[in-house]
Design a protein around this nucleic acid. Structure first.
Lengths: 242, 242
DNA sequence: TAGCTCATTTGACCTAGATCAAGGAACGCC
DNA sequence: GGCGTTCCTTGATCTAGGTCAAATGAGCTA
């Protein structure tokens, strides 16, 4: 069920208007972006770009989730980030793509051709300012994830991942708080630096301990949020991942 | 042997003039920076700022190496980055510091007070443009490191680390190519998500295999660069870490 | 409703790297 | 140049998580 975006859809009504690289732009600057943007959709599972490709377009995720990953020659793969609506794909000033980008769910992108976009970045400070903010936020998130990958136990990794899913989900406060895992067990494993068997075993253990309950493979409810947080290895207050 | 920086040292003769956040600034913009900057030095081992501190100053590393790290409540620590000359410390727009910063060698910083610096970032596009570039580069490096932490073996981690030290060192091309480890075994372990014993064992193994030779604890020569690279797990061409 | 396919779970076993425990060797200091 | 501190090496053992293998079950299609 892909949302359909009309090619000439106005930025003003865009769901990521106030969070993406255009967040600080005024109407004038927005209309300049409008002239060079185009929408493109990908089905779940499809590759969006590969490492090594020539970098010819930049994009913002409008709808859906994409993953950023690296696969080693022997097949080991590490997911280095999830791209949610408003996240940016590409790195102005570079010639080639550094990581594989894959649609995890159906995805709609707002794309820009390289040259005109780089020119805009030079000319419109509101864009580079916003991109600097976003890059610094992502950098922080990446560093938090480095702590997870380098030092957390399997249990802590999975608890942290579940907390992240819960935190990022937008569920009306009155609704039953049922969440959905955006990834398969294997994808979760590649995100956490584990194997899918370990994911499965730990989730089963947390089920048995009454911390989470599953309905089907993907949907879950947190039964004991305090226990989940305790299991994450993060201290009580600080260190919120963006 | 700390280099002494005079308080009114001119930016024009600064060693990081063309790489730091001021790289794109013209003389005019540089003189605005000059009015709000001050130098500060730290001895090797000293903390520079702690996670949780209120964020009141930003800084560029001018001389020396600092580490960025996170320590969990039970003492596990992960180094999430090394800050070399021209690297920036701090995140405009945030209230608190997210990671501990520690001087690894003697360090000299070029510091800016928060308020005037944030104002400059708003007003001088050359600064936000450069900071965006730098943040995106660091983000890439962080993601490469996530692959290392999540998927590489101990041997591959250490080979990658040695390659990084070699790549980042600036050694005259005619000189004997002797490099220096900037970190103790324990710090290397915390950077690679291993224990110091594993670092020691792997280095000994690589010595025995004739890949590296040590002179003292810190100085080494690469005897077989091809073997080192092969051991790093990175493919032949792509994926250079910044 | 049956049958298929593929994701997931579970079990048995193995291994890379951690942990625990002594030594040994640089380097700074008087 | 001796001495102490800190860093480093090496050995013995342990274990979390990986690997290999098989069984189960969710969701699809017909």
């Amino acid at each position: 069920m892909t949302l359909i975006f009309n090619e000439r859809e106005k930025c003003g009504s865009c769901p990521i208007r106030h969070r993406a690289i255009c967040a600080r732009c005024d109407d004038d600057e927005l209309s300049r972006l409008e002239t060079i943007k185009s929408y493109k959709s990908f089905e779940a599972g499809q590759p969006i770009i590969w490492r090594g490709d020539e970098l010819v377009t930049f994009a913002s995720v409008v709808v859906g989730i994409a993953s950023l990953s690296r696969t080693m020659e022997d097949g080991r793969t590490q997911v280095v980030g999830l791209l949610l609506p408003s996240d940016f794909i590409g790195r102005p000033g570079r010639e080639y793509v550094d990581f594989d980008v894959t649609a995890v769910t159906d995805v709609t992108l707002c794309q820009f051709q390289r040259k005109p976009f780089e020119a805009l970045v030079e000319e419109v400070p509101h864009i580079s300012q916003r991109m600097m903010e976003m890059a610094l936020d992502e950098l922080n998130a990446a560093r938090e994830w480095m702590v997870l990958l380098g030092r957390k136990t399997a249990r802590e990794k999975i608890a942290t991942f579940l907390e992240m899913v819960v935190r990022r989900s937008t569920i009306p406060s009155h609704a039953v708080k049922q969440y959905t895992l955006p990834l398969t067990r294997e994808e979760i494993a590649n995100f956490l630096g584990l194997t899918l068997e370990t994911i499965s075993r730990q989730l089963s253990a947390m089920k048995k301990e009454g911390i989470v309950a599953f309905e089907g493979r993907r949907n879950f409810v947190i039964k004991d949020l305090a226990a989940l947080h305790l299991a994450s290895g993060d201290d009580a207050d600080g260190g919120m991942i963006v």
